[in-house]
Computed example of a mutant assay.
Amino acid sequence: MKLLLDFLPIIIFFAVYKSTGDIIIATAVLIPATLAQMAYTWFRTHKIETMQLVTLVLVVLMGGATVLFQDKTFIQWKPSVVNWLFGLAFLGSQFIGQKTVVERLMGSALSLPAMIWRRLNLAWVLFFTAMGFANIAVVYTMSEEAWVNFKLFGMLGLTLIFIIGQGLYLSRHLPSDEKKH
């Protein structure tokens, strides 16, 4: 359910774009959809994750600039900026604090050596960086419609593939007692 809620604004953006063919209108709908998603999350859980907050701010700022200036470039760059910011945050966690971001997110569920946590964290850094560049490549080499399709299906698909790969990597490094559960 959380995954659906997280992707709901993107799905709404996609549906509006497909029905109107207008990326500015789709962006104008994306902004309140994202705000509504955050409000719903806040009222249900009384907390907003940092990643969600960063995404919200960038949707409002870059989406707002798209609508205000009637220039799709801002919203098309947003996924790259989000991914690169997450990549920087994950990279920074390698050097700041006791645990990497990945360990903070998953450490309560898994017991792994520090080296494995660092490798996983660096894999996410590389993934976020690559996703940012992939988005830019699609923006500048393909049509607007291809970018909208990539934004929903391509990025989601690549993320799922990466998570499955991460799961396979993790399964090789779990202690024997955790593999049985």
Rank of each mutant, 00 (worst) to 15 (best):
residue 25 I to M: 12
residue 17 Y to A: 13
residue 18 K to D: 09
residue 99 K to V: 02
residue 68 L to W: 06
residue 116 I to Y: 00
residue 115 M to F: 01
residue 76 Q to D: 13
residue 37 Q to R: 09
residue 122 L to M: 07
residue 65 A to D: 09
residue 62 M to H: 10
residue 123 A to F: 03
residue 55 T to A: 13
residue 146 A to V: 12
residue 149 N to R: 09
residue 23 I to W: 03
residue 83 N to S: 13
residue 105 L to S: 09
residue 95 F to L: 01
residue 112 L to N: 06
residue 59 V to H: 10
residue 27 T to I: 09
residue 133 F to A: 15
residue 122 L to H: 05
residue 48 I to C: 10
residue 139 V to N: 15
residue 104 R to M: 10
residue 45 T to Y: 14
residue 131 M to V: 13
residue 149 N to Q: 13
residue 43 F to Q: 15
residue 156 L to R: 05
residue 17 Y to L: 06
residue 139 V to R: 14
residue 28 A to T: 01
residue 97 G to W: 01
residue 34 T to E: 07
residue 111 S to M: 13
residue 75 I to S: 07
residue 87 G to K: 01
residue 90 F to V: 01
residue 60 V to H: 13
residue 32 P to F: 07
residue 44 R to L: 10
residue 119 R to Q: 05
residue 61 L to A: 13
residue 155 M to N: 09
residue 79 P to S: 13
residue 148 V to K: 04
residue 65 A to K: 07
residue 109 A to K: 11
residue 21 G to T: 01
residue 60 V to T: 14
residue 137 A to M: 08
residue 23 I to S: 04
residue 34 T to Y: 01
residue 113 P to S: 13
residue 118 R to D: 05
residue 74 F to D: 04
residue 142 M to P: 04
residue 103 E to Q: 02
residue 64 G to R: 03
residue 149 N to W: 03
residue 82 V to N: 07
residue 20 T to N: 09
residue 155 M to C: 08
residue 111 S to T: 15
residue 140 Y to F: 10
residue 129 T to E: 04
residue 53 L to W: 05
residue 69 F to P: 05
residue 144 E to G: 11
residue 129 T to Q: 03
residue 80 S to H: 04
residue 81 V to S: 11
residue 114 A to V: 14
residue 126 L to E: 03
residue 57 V to A: 15
residue 36 A to V: 14
residue 51 M to G: 14
residue 30 L to E: 06
residue 117 W to F: 00
residue 49 E to N: 12
residue 118 R to V: 05
residue 19 S to I: 11
residue 152 L to F: 03
residue 14 F to R: 08
residue 61 L to V: 15
residue 134 A to P: 03
residue 111 S to L: 09
residue 12 I to R: 04
residue 145 E to F: 00
residue 103 E to K: 00
residue 89 A to F: 00
residue 155 M to G: 10
residue 111 S to V: 15
residue 44 R to N: 14
residue 10 I to K: 05
